[in-house]
Amino acid sequence: MARKPPSRFLYRDGVGNAALIAGIVAVVCAFIPFVGDFIAVPAGVVAVVAGWVGLGRDVDGTASNGREAVIGAALGGVALFTVFLTFATSSL
């Protein structure tokens, strides 16, 4: 008797959702002077790492929200770049 393949929709979608939420928080906080930098950098790093893990789970077939993981990682990268750019221009 043939084995049934594992279901693609498991409860492993939390990392992709976390990446999206952290990316949104990071981008919003990246444009707040001074205090936003302390929130945007950790949230951006979390978004990039969680997006990477979420995309890996989507490729493995254990998650179904690879799009959200990639968008969250991209938003986290944009936030980190924005914070770096504003820091570099303000320290001149």
Rank of each mutant, 00 (worst) to 15 (best):
M1C: 09
A2G: 11
R3Q: 14
S7H: 13
F9C: 11
F9I: 14
F9D: 14
L10T: 15
L10D: 12
L10N: 14
L10C: 09
Y11R: 14
Y11F: 10
Y11L: 11
R12I: 05
D13N: 15
D13S: 12
G14L: 11
G14C: 12
G14W: 11
V15N: 10
V15M: 12
G16D: 04
G16L: 03
G16S: 14
G16Q: 08
N17V: 12
I21V: 15
I21K: 08
I21E: 05
I21M: 13
A22Y: 04
G23W: 07
G23L: 10
I24P: 02
V25S: 06
A26E: 06
A26T: 09
V28G: 13
V28D: 03
C29T: 15
A30R: 11
A30F: 04
A30S: 15
F31R: 12
I32V: 15
P33E: 10
P33N: 07
D37S: 01
D37G: 03
D37R: 02
D37V: 00
F38V: 10
F38Y: 15
I39E: 03
V41M: 03
V41Q: 00
V41H: 00
A43D: 00
G44H: 02
V45G: 03
V45E: 01
V45W: 04
A47S: 09
A47E: 01
V49S: 02
A50G: 02
A50Q: 03
V53P: 00
V53K: 10
L55R: 11
L55T: 06
R57H: 09
V59Y: 08
D60W: 00
G61F: 00
T62Q: 05
T62V: 13
T62W: 01
A63E: 07
A63H: 10
A63G: 08
A63V: 03
A63Q: 12
A63M: 04
S64N: 07
G66S: 02
R67Q: 07
R67W: 06
E68T: 02
E68I: 00
E68Y: 05
V70N: 00
V70F: 00
G72W: 02
A73V: 06
A74C: 13
A74V: 15
A74H: 02
L75E: 04
L75S: 07
L75V: 11
G76D: 07
V78C: 14
V78D: 05
A79I: 10
A79R: 09
L80V: 10
F81V: 15
F81N: 08
T82G: 04
T82E: 10
T82D: 05
V83Q: 05
V83Y: 03
V83T: 12
F84D: 05
T86I: 11
T86Y: 08
F87Q: 14
A88M: 13
T89N: 07
S90D: 12
S90W: 02
